[in-house]
Measured scan of single mutants.
Amino acid sequence: QRITLKDYAMRFGQTKTAKDLGVYQSAINKAIHAGRKIFLTINADGSVYAEEVKDGEVKPFPS
């Protein structure tokens, strides 16, 4: 399943989102408010992988 960072954070909370991605909650808040195009893939085992689309390139998040 693929979902935006904002939607994932709204569904699970910023604290869990940060923990799942290995970053601080403040980084999640800042990324959402900056309007960054970050998409999360939720794997069947429950693990989460995030990618950011920037300038036409897709890069892992966090980099």
Rank of each mutant, 00 (worst) to 15 (best):
residue 63 S to N: 15
residue 47 S to D: 07
residue 37 K to V: 12
residue 53 V to R: 06
residue 17 T to C: 07
residue 59 K to S: 12
residue 31 A to H: 04
residue 43 N to G: 10
residue 18 A to T: 03
residue 18 A to S: 07
residue 12 F to W: 11
residue 9 A to R: 06
residue 50 A to Q: 00
residue 63 S to P: 12
residue 13 G to A: 01
residue 35 G to H: 10
residue 28 I to T: 01
residue 29 N to C: 10
residue 46 G to M: 06
residue 11 R to Y: 10
residue 12 F to K: 03
residue 5 L to K: 00
residue 46 G to H: 06
residue 34 A to F: 08
residue 53 V to E: 15
residue 36 R to Y: 06
residue 58 V to N: 08
residue 13 G to I: 01
residue 8 Y to E: 00
residue 34 A to P: 02
residue 49 Y to N: 09
residue 55 D to V: 05
residue 34 A to Y: 10
residue 58 V to T: 14
residue 63 S to L: 11
residue 12 F to D: 02
residue 12 F to Y: 13
residue 15 T to G: 13
residue 40 L to H: 00
residue 56 G to Y: 06
residue 56 G to Q: 06
residue 52 E to C: 04
residue 8 Y to W: 04
residue 37 K to Q: 15
residue 29 N to V: 14
residue 56 G to W: 05
residue 29 N to I: 13
residue 11 R to N: 07
residue 10 M to H: 13
residue 34 A to D: 15
residue 41 T to D: 05
residue 27 A to V: 15
residue 12 F to I: 03
residue 61 F to P: 03
residue 14 Q to K: 14
residue 44 A to E: 12
residue 14 Q to W: 14
residue 47 S to W: 05
residue 6 K to H: 11
residue 52 E to I: 04
residue 8 Y to Q: 01
residue 38 I to D: 00
residue 38 I to Y: 02
residue 26 S to T: 10
residue 59 K to L: 14
residue 34 A to W: 07
residue 14 Q to T: 15
residue 57 E to Y: 14
residue 34 A to E: 15
residue 56 G to V: 04
residue 35 G to F: 06
residue 63 S to F: 09
residue 13 G to T: 03
residue 18 A to L: 03
residue 51 E to N: 07
residue 6 K to G: 09
residue 20 D to P: 01
residue 19 K to V: 10
residue 40 L to T: 03
residue 41 T to Q: 08
residue 59 K to F: 14
residue 20 D to F: 04
residue 3 I to D: 03
residue 16 K to A: 07
residue 2 R to V: 11
residue 37 K to M: 13
residue 54 K to N: 12
residue 21 L to S: 02
residue 22 G to D: 05
residue 34 A to L: 10
residue 29 N to L: 10
residue 46 G to T: 04
residue 3 I to A: 05
residue 12 F to A: 03
residue 26 S to R: 08
residue 29 N to P: 07
residue 5 L to H: 01
residue 57 E to N: 11
residue 30 K to Y: 10
residue 53 V to L: 12
residue 15 T to W: 14
residue 34 A to C: 08
residue 28 I to L: 08
residue 17 T to E: 01
residue 6 K to A: 14
residue 36 R to W: 07
residue 1 Q to P: 10
residue 41 T to P: 00
residue 33 H to S: 14
residue 27 A to K: 07
residue 16 K to D: 03
residue 22 G to I: 03
residue 52 E to H: 03
residue 35 G to L: 06
residue 40 L to F: 03
residue 7 D to V: 06
residue 48 V to A: 05
residue 48 V to G: 01
residue 54 K to H: 12
residue 48 V to P: 02
residue 22 G to Y: 04
residue 4 T to E: 10
residue 43 N to T: 12
residue 61 F to R: 02
residue 62 P to V: 05
residue 46 G to C: 06
residue 6 K to T: 09
residue 43 N to W: 11
residue 10 M to K: 13
residue 21 L to T: 03
residue 25 Q to C: 09
residue 9 A to K: 05
residue 54 K to G: 11
residue 63 S to M: 12
residue 35 G to Y: 05
residue 19 K to E: 12
residue 18 A to C: 04
residue 43 N to H: 11
residue 20 D to A: 09
residue 40 L to W: 00
residue 7 D to F: 04
residue 50 A to W: 03
residue 25 Q to P: 14
residue 14 Q to L: 15
residue 13 G to N: 02
residue 39 F to G: 01
residue 11 R to C: 08
residue 32 I to K: 01
residue 45 D to Y: 05
residue 30 K to T: 12
